[in-house]
């Protein structure tokens, strides 16, 4: 499995923290179907999952929040996951984006 390339362990006692950048390649942007897929996946994990766009961060487990990103094709987003199995979740989220949500 590919290791998170920019993962940073904040300190030894805090749960592992992972960060990755992704690009929205969908023709119609991050519309409701991909937002649902992100939220469904993230909700299966107990760790935190946050998506950041232009400095604004939203909860990846909430479809309402995801929809407010208004991320059109070409938007760059940053994913943050921290907590139990955060490494696994971030890899799966990155895979969703890289497969244009066909994964």
């Amino acid at each position: 499995m590919k290791q998170a390339d920019s993962s940073v362990d904040i300190n030894m006692s805090a749960p592992a923290y992972y960060e990755r950048d992704v690009m929205v390649n969908l023709e119609h942007g991050l519309h409701l179907v991909p937002c649902s897929k992100i939220a469904e996946l993230a909700k299966r994990y107990s760790c935190n999952a946050i998506i950041i766009k232009d400095g604004r961060s939203i909860d990846a487990k909430t479809i309402f929040d995801l929809m407010t990103l208004g991320a059109v094709k070409g938007t760059r987003l940053t994913l943050h996951c921290q907590g139990e199995k955060a490494d696994e979740l971030i890899e799966k989220l990155v895979a969703l984006f890289e497969s244009d949500f066909q994964a």
């Binding site: 119609h28 519309h31 309402f64 929809m67």
Partner: peptide
Amino acid sequence: RPGEHLRALETISRHLR
């Protein structure tokens, strides 16, 4: 006009939350 569609859904979601 996919951009407009997405912006409208974004606006609706923002208010409905």
